[in-house]
């Protein structure tokens, strides 16, 4: 199987990284600002949503997931799905009267 070993590597230019980095800083700014406003239960939802958006950019560009094969994406979906199963099913217990 050694014929895949020197597969074309994708070079991402420095400029793109700086662009992504600025975006991430902007999102950080937004999330800090929003946390100052009292939105009740929505605060945490918005904070986590912004964190997910930031992660999406880190994952796709810094970690090159965008340029990887489909199997890597399947893997990551499996791992995240498993985590959310573990998290969600624990709440079968906690979100109902014990």
């Amino acid at each position: 199987m050694s014929d895949h070993q020197h597969e074309e590597s994708h070079v991402i230019e420095y400029g793109n990284y700086i662009f992504i980095w600025l975006g991430l800083l902007a999102f950080t700014g937004i999330t800090v600002t929003v946390s100052g406003i009292n939105l009740g239960n929505w605060t945490i939802v918005i904070a986590l949503f912004i964190a997910c958006v930031k992660s999406w950019y880190v994952l796709n560009y810094f970690m090159h997931m965008k340029y990887e094969d489909i199997i890597f994406k399947v893997f990551i979906a499996t791992a995240l799905f498993t985590f959310f199963i573990f998290l969600g099913f624990t709440f079968w217990d906690y979100s109902f009267t014990r």
Partner: peptide
């Protein structure tokens, strides 16, 4: 096999993810 090495690394990262995931579950509860 660079591709395989990266695949192995990703699998390892998943274990790290779930390791912290356990803590996030505790936090959430």
């Amino acid at each position: 096999d660079d591709y395989g090495s990266r695949m192995g690394m990703w699998l390892f990262l998943f274990t790290e993810l779930i390791l912290f995931g356990g803590l996030f579950i505790i936090y959430a509860v």
